[in-house]
């Protein structure tokens, strides 16, 4: 097990290193944008003197490197500075919104991941049948449609024509968990439709890819029934690529859902980021970007480790 722990620690180290590089990129990319917080806060009517005074007050006149180190130091402890627009701490502005995004992502993932994998196993078992083709065409259609379009279609059918679910997923503090689930069902369903195809097709492909292996033929020649050949003999060896695609899709559920949030008026972090960019609220932009990057790296790291853990050669060294 020593080897395995070492491998995991190494990956973790690489992950942190990547995050550091990304933080540099984020900070200095935002630096490159024309204008700065002082100008943004004071507006167009500000005189150069007031802008300079503001800069001095905010410490913006100091070299970028020093500000980066300070910013990074704060970020590590969860302090991303003050929003340039509202004057509140950044964490206060985006904290709850990030939690909302996580909630919606988890909601969609809990439905989509098992659904996609089970569907993938079924179509691998019934490969080249009518069901296989229908499932492929349906999931491909849903992934090829833009998500705002899917969202509006769902609103049209499930909220307007047949009013089963609310069309607007705005939240209030006193909702029960089940109300919450009902309120956010349509955005979650939209996301499920978007991410299912990838995961299902990868499950199908990686299982079918293994069906030519000698050990699969051996299982068949041992009289193992077809479903068991797939579930017991192919699937345990197919996890690595499946886990990777699942992780990529989970990352998408968190970082790529701006459009869905807009369609359903859902108070997520994506909307907050778009608002902040348009209002030049740099501290919020930087914080949101770093959180996105962290999520992305964390999920990929989890996928790497998951893939390692499903490899019996690594789990059971000689």
């Amino acid at each position: 097990m020593g080897d395995l722990a070492q491998l995991v620690l190494k990956r973790l180290g690489y992950g942190l290193l990547t995050l550091l590089v990304v933080s540099i990129l984020i900070f200095f990319a935002v630096e490159l944008l024309p204008g700065d917080v002082a100008e943004a806060v004071l507006g167009q009517g500000a005189t150069p003197e007031t802008v300079a005074a503001m800069r001095e007050q905010l410490g913006l006149d100091r070299p970028a490197i020093i500000r980066y180190v300070e910013w990074l130091g704060g970020a590590v402890t969860g302090d991303f500075g003050i929003s340039a627009v509202s004057g509140d701490p950044v964490m206060q502005v985006i904290g709850t919104r990030f939690v909302n995004t996580l909630f919606l992502a988890a909601y969609a993932a809990v439905i989509a991941v098992p659904f996609a994998i089970v569907l993938g196993i079924i179509v691998a078992l019934l490969r080249n049948s009518v069901f296989d083709r229908v499932a492929n065409v349906a999931t491909l259609t849903s992934i090829s449609s833009p998500e705002f379009f899917l969202g509006y279609i769902l609103i049209l059918f499930l909220a307007v024509k047949v009013p089963l679910f609310p069309a607007i997923a705005s939240l209030s503090g006193d909702m029960s968990f089940f109300q919450l689930l009902e309120r956010t069902f349509l955005p979650a369903l939209t996301l499920v439709l978007v991410v299912t195809a990838h995961m299902m097709r990868m499950t199908r492909a990686s299982i079918i890819n293994l069906l030519a292996s000698p050990y699969i033929e051996m299982a068949r020649l041992k009289g193992v029934p077809p479903w068991k050949v797939i579930v017991r003999h192919a699937l345990p060896n197919a996890w690595a690529p499946i886990i990777n695609v699942v992780a990529l899709n989970l990352a998408y559920l968190i970082t790529g859902v701006v459009l869905v949030e807009v369609v359903f008026v859902y108070p997520g972090i994506g909307q907050a980021l778009v608002d902040a960019v348009s209002k030049r609220d740099f501290p919020v932009v930087q914080a949101a970007s770093l959180i996105f990057a962290g999520t992305f790296i964390l999920l990929n790291l989890a996928a790497d480790i998951g893939a390692i853990l499903t490899n019996p050669r690594l789990r059971h060294p000689k």
Partner: peptide
């Protein structure tokens, strides 16, 4: 299928490839 493994068995060329690694 009911014969395979029970009344007729198979030994493959490469045992290393024919045992399921998992």
């Amino acid at each position: 299928r009911a014969l395979r493994g029970s009344r007729i068995a198979y030994v493959a060329q490469s045992a290393a490839a024919s045992f399921n690694p998992a």
